[in-house]
Each structure stands twice: as C-alpha cells, then as structure tokens.
Computed example of a mutant assay.
Amino acid sequence: MFRMTDAFSILRPLILASGSPRRRAFLEGMGIPFEVLPADGPEPRPIPGEDPREYTGRCAEAKARHVLASLAHRSDCPAVLSADTTVIVRDERGSDILGKPRDRDDAVAMLSRLAGRTHQVVTACCLAMDGHVERFDDVTDVTFAPWPLAMLEAYADSGDPLDKAGAYGIQDGGAFLVQTIRGSWSTVVGLPLDIVLERLLHAGVIAVKERS
C-alpha cells in the first residue's frame, strides 16, 4: 500500500472515532499519527422527512461528541475525527437511505435495487476539539452496471457486503459492480481524504513539514 512519510507534523493528538480499517488505512497512508477510539453509543435514527445529507452529518457529529466527552480527563487537548457513510437511492419506490445490510438476503435486496441505476454516496465527517465541532461532507454519484441476480447473489454469498453501507465495497470485491463514478473515490470508500486533510491543516491539528 502507498504510504507517504514525513509530510506532516502532528500538532495535537488526533483520535479517529471509527473502527473502519479503510479509514485507518487512509490516514496511515498519509503518515499521520493517530489513535483509534470507535464511538460505542447508539447511532441516531433518521427523522421522517430528514434530508439524507443532514442525517449523515448528524450521525458523524454524534460519534465525535460521544468520543470527545469520553476524553475529558485528558490534558493534551486531543482532536476527534469521525465519519459516517450512507448510500442514497432514488427510484420509483421513493428516496431511501441504505445503511449496512442486516443479513445476506437484505444485501441481495439492496444490490438488486442499485443494479443498473445511479445512486449517491455521502460521507460526512465531524472534527471536534476544544468544545467546538465542525461538520463537513462530500457526495459522489455512483452508477452500477445492470448485473443479473445470480451475480449479485454470488457477491452477497462472499460476505463482503455485510459490513458496508449499501452492501458493497468499491475498494474490495464489489468493484466489479461499478460502471462509473462521478466525484471522489475516497468518499465512496468512506473518507473524503482531500477535504479531511484541508480541515486538519486549517484547524491546526497537523502542519506540512518544510523541506530543507
């Protein structure tokens, strides 16, 4: 895996409020030191009529606030970065948020609904520090090829979709499902890396090392 070292200095401890190995890999690849402390509180439920982007941001903020509160005893002023990813599908059945599937059959149902259509992937992040929270997000359009049911069932049987929003991972075995994307690949994976780096720099969590 690509890794960039000695690009950034860490100015205060960074806590990643996520157990996602994909999000960890992004930060590790940029050579940014961080600790992992997943949020263990219950995830908010959507409010009827709530905008999907607003809901995703609310989930990310809840995670960041929960973890930041648990670090109140620390004197080193850590910053907490959280993220939440949802898949939004709009079709004749309406507009729905697809989270992680309950089981194999639910994964097949999700994949069948996405096949041959364009959906949106929203990854919202929250940076919390010093009692202040900042939310930001990114949206990418993803179009699936019109795969037959047998292909979708074979993918669901692999187990890969079960821990992923929308029942697929573009970075893993689910890459074959995707025909085109319009936007950020890292957003679909689970962390809009360019935006995250910009916010960490702006907030004074990291700094670019000067070259001699």
Rank of each mutant, 00 (worst) to 15 (best):
F2I: 15
M4T: 15
M4P: 10
T5Q: 13
D6H: 14
A7P: 10
S9I: 12
L11D: 02
P21Y: 12
F26G: 01
E28C: 11
E28H: 06
G29D: 09
G29L: 05
I32D: 03
P33S: 11
F34E: 14
V36C: 15
P38S: 04
D40Y: 02
D40W: 06
R45A: 15
G49P: 04
D51C: 08
P52E: 02
E54Q: 12
Y55W: 05
A60N: 06
E61N: 10
A62T: 10
A62R: 13
K63N: 11
K63F: 05
V67S: 01
L68P: 01
A72K: 15
H73L: 08
S75T: 14
D76V: 08
A79C: 12
V80C: 11
T85P: 09
T86A: 13
V87P: 10
I88N: 02
I88W: 04
D91K: 04
S95M: 12
S95D: 07
I97H: 03
K100L: 11
K100I: 11
D103P: 09
A107E: 02
V108N: 09
V108Y: 10
T118A: 12
H119S: 08
V121E: 00
V122Y: 01
A124I: 05
A124S: 05
L127E: 06
G131T: 08
H132V: 15
E134F: 06
R135W: 07
D137N: 14
V142R: 00
F144P: 00
L149P: 06
M151S: 15
S158L: 09
D160E: 13
P161L: 05
K164P: 03
Q171C: 07
G173N: 03
G174D: 03
A175P: 09
A175W: 05
Q179V: 00
T180S: 08
W185E: 06
T187D: 11
D194W: 10
I195Q: 12
L200R: 05
H202L: 14
V205D: 01
V205S: 02
E210A: 13
E210Y: 09
E210S: 11
R211I: 14
